[in-house]
Design a protein around this nucleic acid. Sequence first.
DNA 1: TATGAATGAGGATTCATTCAT
DNA 2: AATGAATGAATCCTCATTCAT
Lengths: 200, 200, 200, 200
Amino acid sequence: MPKRGMEPIRQLQFIEATVEIIHEEGLHGTTLSRVAKRAGTSPGLVAHYFGDKAGLLHATFRHLAKALGTEFRDHLARVKGPHQRLRAVIDANFAESQSSPAVVSAWLAFWGQVNHRPELARVQRVVTNRLKSNLLFSLRELVPAEDADQIASGLAVMIDGLWLRAMLRTGGLNVAEARGMARDYLEMQLRTREPETLDA
Amino acid sequence: MPKRGMEPIRQLQFIEATVEIIHEEGLHGTTLSRVAKRAGTSPGLVAHYFGDKAGLLHATFRHLAKALGTEFRDHLARVKGPHQRLRAVIDANFAESQSSPAVVSAWLAFWGQVNHRPELARVQRVVTNRLKSNLLFSLRELVPAEDADQIASGLAVMIDGLWLRAMLRTGGLNVAEARGMARDYLEMQLRTREPETLDA
Amino acid sequence: MPKRGMEPIRQLQFIEATVEIIHEEGLHGTTLSRVAKRAGTSPGLVAHYFGDKAGLLHATFRHLAKALGTEFRDHLARVKGPHQRLRAVIDANFAESQSSPAVVSAWLAFWGQVNHRPELARVQRVVTNRLKSNLLFSLRELVPAEDADQIASGLAVMIDGLWLRAMLRTGGLNVAEARGMARDYLEMQLRTREPETLDA
Amino acid sequence: MPKRGMEPIRQLQFIEATVEIIHEEGLHGTTLSRVAKRAGTSPGLVAHYFGDKAGLLHATFRHLAKALGTEFRDHLARVKGPHQRLRAVIDANFAESQSSPAVVSAWLAFWGQVNHRPELARVQRVVTNRLKSNLLFSLRELVPAEDADQIASGLAVMIDGLWLRAMLRTGGLNVAEARGMARDYLEMQLRTREPETLDA
DNA sequence: TATGAATGAGGATTCATTCAT
DNA sequence: AATGAATGAATCCTCATTCAT
């Protein structure tokens, strides 16, 4: 039943199906026929939209990265001033769209591939840099450049660690707690470095 | 060319080969024949020593976890007092044996499996708990119980994040820097919470 | 070279190939690649149509059982009265379609599996019951119920024994002789139990 | 722990283990390591005693055939006269040693191989001929040669059919009933052909 | 005589991919 | 645009067999 203008709809169907299957079966169990079945289509159609399996995974990873970027933009659009912006960046990282178990599983699965697939490494680099520059932009308004760099690095590491914990589910950590820890880290750092400022 | 008493030698050969191949080819490219070839034996021998592929991976993961545990013990054996012990725990996590690219790749690959393989989840839980209790033991001598808990959690998360960064190689982080960041985090926390103590 | 609507054609090709290979190589030598080659396709296609090897064997056994059932129906459709019907049942069991060496080999091979594969046991039970009830239906018109039961059992056993002999080819028995012996057995039994009837 | 004079003990251990494993796992599941384990030894030892797997199976089949022959001899040794001898032959075929489920499974498994392994065909031919000549010897004292031949053939077929039924377990037949049916068949045949004789 | 280490061929099965429809 | 038939390579695993001890 071919229809016109299906391209964006189909692509999204496939990508969402891929994320779900990765979560349920692991990356190793993520086969094209399972994904196709979940997407309600046939396996052969993947070639039409993504070329091959690698193309599908690449598109899925980019989709996740883009969704995270959208969260950044949305959270930042609502606030003003460096302190609120920093908090917005943290919140964006633990937003609902990024915290569903399936999405989190997919991120972890992709991380395992980053060192073996250049196209995924590129995506990851963009994600890492975007977070860092978002943090730096606000931090530089509050502390000296060198301190800003240190805090940004530390906070980025903290956020990654919190994601990892959430994924491995061995730390008994939920999203709210994770967000809280990231905020505490930031506040502690700022308190140490800008003692004279009256904070919001 | 069968010889007696090969069991421990062969097992170690297989495990080391597995770590190397995971690093070079990714978990997906880690086939029994590649591992066997690297170990200098035939693929059929895996069954003899590990039952099947899952058994080999399980044994490899346990081996990594055990090696990390050995680092803890060794580092802790050389020092005295809570401050030195905390530093020893951090150093153990970034010891050489745990920082080779191959080992680090293997850890990441296994993390991607933890949610889909109960036997790996068990290993990971042991690793997580061991780190936490090692940190807590020393922290409780320095700060109130509640604070100790918070610091231990934060430091554990930080260490995981640093590992992840080191693995993804997108943060431009080396081992020495990672260790430095973990130490900084710890010191900052202690400074905040035990202001009256004269620290070493 | 994929074509639409191949399902029934392919399935029959596979089943016939399976029977031939069982005859030529034994059940142990019946590998999927040999069957696929004989059927003119690739081994992977078995999964598409039968799931796995067990599915193929099950389907083959059911096919044999069904073919035997068809012989019953055809032979019975042409005759009238209990005597003719009983003879028809015997003839059906030794009809050409059931007597080719390949078919006979396949039956024996399956019998060897019946006690280890429940799905095959079910098929065999159907075959056994069908023969018995076919015999009973006619016999009850000729002799008392109890006698009918005994004769049906005895004749069914005789038929099985004759098949086995034909298969093992150690008795120097051909199909015509086998059929003759089954008929003799039946007639002797009837003569003993219904002396007053004038037989056809 | 090598010992002297183990040969006959070991061989019997292996053969009995083989029969058991065939019963439990089917001929297809009868691997040398399973047999060896059951026999309490190591797989490599099979080569020492039987050359290879085919040798083990051949020896096992010969063992079964020999055991059946022993039953004949024992049952025949105790009786006198053609009628008693015929009954003894029947009883031998359904003696306990031949009726255990394991033994019966093994016979069926071997029958499935007879057409693909000349050395097994030879054994089967001996078994078939021995039964026939045993029956003929006694029958010829009771009825004309031609009748004797017919009855012997029929009875042999009947016995095979009864065995098969017992194996397939789809006829709901136990050993006692089977023996009864064979006796009935014989008596009916004799009654028909030697009406003037007063039977024992 | 006995073990169990080691091999390597062979089998079932899975799966990405291609292609006729 | 979409299907699903078909392929064949690749993988895991089993197992008979050989061999050093």
